[in-house]
Design a protein around this nucleic acid. Sequence first.
DNA 1: GGAAGCGCGCTTAGCAATAT
DNA 2: ATATTGCTAAGCGCGCTTCC
Length: 259
Amino acid sequence: MAGLTIKDIARICGVSISTVSRAINNDPGINARTRERVLQVVKEFNYIPNNSARNLKMAESNTIVLLVKGINNPFFQSMFPYFQEGLEKEGYQYLLHTIDEDADEAYAAEEITKEKRLKGIIFLGGILDYPEVVLENIQVPVVLCSVAVVSPDLGKAEPRISMVSIDDEAEAYKAVSCFCRKGHRRIAIIAGRKRDYTVGSRRLAGYKRALQDHGISFDPGLVGYQKEELPEYSEANGYATAMELLKSGRNFTAFFVIS
DNA sequence: GGAAGCGCGCTTAGCAATAT
DNA sequence: ATATTGCTAAGCGCGCTTCC
């Protein structure tokens, strides 16, 4: 049955819409058997309350948007079920909102918070170098995942904004150290763009520190910076940068690649 | 042309009615 | 007397219709 409303459920159950509302919203003032009967019909007819109408009435929704920049990123795709599981466990609704690689995620977030009454936004991907003021325009709590913003103090200054991110410097250090322990002395790196102040620069710093700790001097000639004219961290950019290093005639035995 | 009213689907509060 | 259920109205944002 399409377009089933609370009225239909009430009619089917032989009760009023108030009773149906009480049942589906776990209101204490309803007989347990009546609640069970209503929920049985809800299940049987696969009734889903109209969320727009619900949000229209309720001062705020219980929806958290997962704003994903780069839907094709396999790393992100594997994370979706965990977000969903975690949010639903806490009683929140989960809404997946994807934007293109070249879209402005801060603007998209601002738009979506105006359109819907949200409880919060989780950013997955993007938010690489926005100033704090842009994030402050988003009027709901924000969690930044997978990448950190420029200012490490942002979370302290603005309690609505939290970050869950990889320690890029430390992880790069571990990866490059692994190469060093295996005896590699000439390790090339495909870094971010030259003017990268976030992920790329942190991983490059980890790369340099690992070399230093293993007594290897840093050779700027072994750094391949991603090209400005190609999308950042794309397969095409990685390939072009790698080919350039390979064709440069420089001698190296390993590649550390920022993806 | 502009203001007012209505309907959409739902929640919620408050009170009345009915059953136990 | 108490528990349960029903009824009604308000209100949310927006588009549409009706009326002056």
